[in-house]
Structure formats: structure tokens, C-alpha cells
Simulated assay, not measured.
Amino acid sequence: MSIIHQLPNLFTAARLVATVPLVRRIRGGRTGPGTAVGVGVWAATDWIDGTLARRMHWESTIGKALDPLADRAGISAIAWSLAKVGELPRRVPITVLIMDLATGVLTSKAAYRGRLKVSYLGKVRSAILFVAMVSAAAGPRRRGRLGRFPHALADLGAVLHMVAGVSYIRAAHLGNRSHRRH
């Protein structure tokens, strides 16, 4: 496979690597427009890698494994960092982490066998969490009238994260039951 066909994986890897400086910046108390743009670019790579992979038929086994890892690790790390500096409520990263662990443990077999597909709800949930994190990364002085908007949006994202996680667990369980019958 040529390097051009690896573009989706390169975007995914870049997202994973970019998580570290973003987290350092946030934990260093440097929220503001630059950090918000950084988180926005970070989040956009999730759309870019998926779109390239699907539309250009450049899907790969490594991409299917690496993309959710980059998403889950990045969302957790960035949300924890934003909570640590008071820009998001702590309940959001706690909910995300607990649900990610439960989903990972309870769906790993189905995911490994390729029987677990990303749901529309999962995409909506991620988009809402991304917007909440970008808004929170802008910092309180930059939000103005938006005030606690990132908190409310992050809470909504966390609730949708639980619903999506339960639906993935249910789909994996039903798929495993169906697979055993055949």
C-alpha cells in the first residue's frame, strides 16, 4: 500500500501525538483562542481521517484499531485536563472514562472480529464532546455570553456517551449470541 493510501492513518497518528502538547498547554493554564484552535484542529482530524478512509476506500486494519484509540485517549486526556483547570466539570471525564473502560471490556471480542460498527449516535456524541472541548479550551474570558455553555454541552455529550456505550455493549452482546448460534 502506497504512502498516499496511508493518509488516514497518518492523520490518526497525528491526532494521537498532538494530544500530548495540547494536554500540556491546558494543564499549564494556557487556555484561550490558540488552545481552542489547537483542540479544534485535533478534533477535525477525526473527521478527515474517516472521510478519507471511507470515500477513497483506504480503510485498513490498523486504522480501524488506531482511530478509536486516538479518539478515546484524546477525549479522555483533553477532558481531564480541562476539568483539572476548572473549564469542564469533573463528572464529564469521569463518565467518559468509566464508560470507555466498560465498553472496551464488554465489546472487545466483537470489535476484534469486526462485528462492531460505529453508530450515528456515536458520531453525534463525539461531535458534541469536541465542540464542548473547543469551547472550554477558549477559556472563561473568551466565552463572554456563552458562560457555562461548554459545561452544559459536555454534560449532554457525557449522557450521549453513556447511551452510545450501552448501545455498543448491547450490539456486541446480541452479535455474540447470534454468532454462537451459527
Rank of each mutant, 00 (worst) to 15 (best):
G32R: 01
G34L: 13
A36C: 06
V41M: 08
V41A: 12
V41C: 02
W42Q: 00
W42M: 06
A43F: 04
A43T: 00
A44T: 03
A44I: 03
A44M: 08
T45G: 13
T45E: 04
D46P: 01
W47C: 02
W47H: 05
D49M: 05
D49Q: 00
D49H: 04
G50N: 07
T51M: 07
A53N: 01
A53W: 04
R54V: 07
R55D: 07
H57I: 02
H57D: 14
W58D: 00
W58A: 04
T61R: 15
I62S: 11
I62Q: 11
G63Y: 02
K64G: 13
K64E: 10
A65K: 13
D67N: 04
L69P: 00
D71R: 02
D71Y: 01
S76Q: 11
S76A: 15
S76V: 14
I78Y: 04
S81H: 06
L82V: 01
L82P: 05
G86F: 03
G86Y: 06
G86K: 06
E87G: 01
L88V: 06
L88Q: 00
P89N: 06
P89Y: 07
T95M: 04
T95Q: 02
V96D: 00
L97K: 01
M99V: 15
L101C: 12
T103S: 12
G104M: 10
L106M: 14
T107D: 07
T107N: 09
T107G: 07
S108P: 05
A110M: 10
Y112V: 11
R113T: 10
R115I: 03
R115P: 05
K117Q: 14
K117R: 14
S119G: 10
S119Q: 05
Y120C: 09
L121V: 05
L121S: 05
K123L: 05
K123Q: 10
K123R: 13
V124Q: 10
S126N: 13
I128A: 11
L129N: 00
F130S: 13
F130Y: 15
V131C: 06
V131S: 11
A132M: 11
A132I: 04
M133V: 11
V134P: 03
A136Y: 09
A136R: 00
A136M: 09
A138C: 08
P140E: 14
R141V: 12
R143G: 07
G144V: 12
R145E: 13
L146H: 09
G147Q: 12
R148S: 14
R148E: 14
F149W: 14
P150E: 11
H151V: 09
A152M: 12
L153P: 01
A154T: 02
D155M: 13
D155G: 06
G157C: 05
L160A: 01
L160D: 01
H161F: 09
M162V: 15
V163R: 09
V166E: 03
S167R: 15
S167H: 12
R170D: 12
A172W: 09
A172T: 05
G175M: 04
G175H: 06
N176T: 09
N176K: 10
N176Q: 13
R177S: 07
